[in-house]
Write a protein that binds this DNA or RNA. Sequence first.
RNA 1: GGCGCGGUAGCUCAGGUGGUUAGAGCGUUGGAUUCAUAACCCAAAGGUCGGGGGUUCAACUCCCCCCCGCGCUACCA
Length: 700
Amino acid sequence: MKKDFKRYTVTAALPYANGPLHIGHVAGAYLPADTYVRYLRLKGEDVAFVCGSDEHGVAITIGAKKEGVSPKAFVDKYHELMKKAFADFGISFDIYSRTSNKIHYDTAQDFFRKIDAQHLFLEETSDQYFDEQEGIFLADRYIAGTCPNCGHTNAYGDQCEKCGTSLSPKQLINPRSTVSGNTPVLKPTKHWYFPLDKFEGWLKDWLIEGHKSDWKTNVYGQCKSWIDQGLQPRSITRDLEWGIPVPREDGKGKVLYVWFDAPIGYISATKELKGADWEKYWKSDDTRLIHFIGKDNIVFHCIIFPSMLKAEGTFILPDNVPANEFLNLEGEKLSTSRNHAVWLHEYLVDFPGRRDELRYVLNSISPETKDADFTWKDYQQKVNSELVAILGNFVNRVMVLTWKYFEGKVPASHELPNTSDKRKRILDLYNLAHIDLNKSVAEMVKALEDFRFRDAQFHMMNLARVGNKFLADTEPWKLAKEDMEAVGCILNYALTVVGNISIACQPFLPDTARNIHAQLNMDASEVSKKFWKSQTLVEPVGAGHQLNPAALLFRNVEDTEIEVQVEKLRKVKAAKMEVSTTVIENPVKPLKEIVTIDDFGKLDIRVGTITAATKMEKSDKLLKLTVDSGLDTRTILSGIAKHYTPEEVIGKQVTFIANLAPRKMMGTESQGMILMAEDSDGKLRLLQPNEVVRPGSTVS
RNA sequence: GGCGCGGUAGCUCAGGUGGUUAGAGCGUUGGAUUCAUAACCCAAAGGUCGGGGGUUCAACUCCCCCCCGCGCUACCA
């Protein structure tokens, strides 16, 4: 089943260069990737660990505009910020590149040409909104207008942020360009599409059949769901200035859509890293390609990008995509825009020299199978009761004992058996511990191989647990009064355990590993290789070896320290509340264009009484209302299911448009439209006369 | 509404081709101990394995229905 791979290409999702990194990014992709890569390197594998900033797309241009800078200046800023945060945190990329590099432009364009030459792309001309004053086609995000769903007057062309509905620009009422403020016009434009549908059969073979058992269930299930729903051609170009130009004569003014160029960034980064040698890492069957991503990226990395690679024809495909779920913070979703986050660069300032603590905690709650929650209380508890109390304490007590009884020199491991019952007992305990430790090492390695880093770290910590127990059971401080040879034997082994911990913790706690190496005064490289090769305990320090003075590895996280952090989050929330209050105070939306009394007169608005109401089947939002309109009894569908139950609406009078052209929805015809008032929080309320009137009464 | 993933001790999670008293770490409580950052060690308490049906000699594990969380998706004239 498992192939014999000669080298690894490991990618971590390219972070989008429009904001800083937070712990959710770290826990989702970068920490697991880094842990895995460190493990691979320790095993002596040939690995290319690539990442970089994703710098194209409309969101960048919008962000740049908001800050009043060029897109290039905008991405420069965030690229540097993220690059520094990664470096400061110790994510060990072999290269952290960026998609605005020339090499990436060339790579992405070559990639496009290669597929284009096979005439695989579809071309399609469609009407898109065009801003005549600016002379540009407007991306969905650049168009604002009234949401057809909730009436929010500031909905974007791709989504209404108020009610969350996803939209297309043409659905917007009174569209306007957010660039110039003018009303855009529809104009034909040509775009290229990648025929994902043509890869359905192949995806079924490769993914659904081929990776049924080796991919995580959450990843596999999501992919299967997508494929089963049927795939559509996807547009791969945009009318935009910022991006990689479409390499075609007739592609002037158009760029590759960001999702198309971004994953190619992995390839560009590898070229930059390996030079002429890069193809080995992308085109050789004995290379294992692994993508580390968050769950939001599953469809791109498991379906779209592999299809692109397949279409190009000369590349290998990902062997595994161990996507993580999401991390929450104090019970709420992390949010860049709401500033509800623990920013990586801020953590590094607030907790200097405590990178491993964050690594440890994030890894121990890693959202491998479901969304997880980071709380500062939990952070404190895990650091204090696990890193400090179990790992740090074990290393410290062994060091202190060795200095106390042997002046910091590793004692000789004498032959002990048969000389006394006590010695025999020590030997038994030693054997037990040894078996336990080797078992933990084996399980740790197994977990690392399976991308179960949470579990792997647990088994690593088990080494310290067994070590503590070994000391408690053998009690060398008591024996010191009667049998120093036995004490030496015990401590010799305890030091062996410490040394092995320092080797085993390297993928998880790289700083701690170095700290222990320093205290043990050992050169880890050779024994480490042996350890990871044999996956059993090694002997890192021999008798007579001189240790350095003991130093504490970790210190307790004080209540005050986490209170500061919790307070920080609370303040952000409070500030946010204030902002939303001001929004409520100033909810007035811009006026729609002036209409005449004749325009108004075309509408036949009436009051009717709801005589029956049921929830529309198979719909979350629609209620099916039967309305006595005075003229007739008609059926009106209304998207108010989230605001009213059918029961509470029956018997109520409502205002509705009586002469609106009927429209079929979910197989039922709606004969009119119920008028609603929308509160500032998006809540919908029926518009009623303040006294009951006869059904059919007109409104004017 | 459809699809996917998940719902196991206070917390973080294991588990199982169905079969003795359902596991671990942390937390809690009690004990023991002093080499160690009131740490370590031992022990105990703590779960009707989301709810309800069904299949079976036997289900937490298989089947059906429902509820909750997260994500994707349809509907919102």
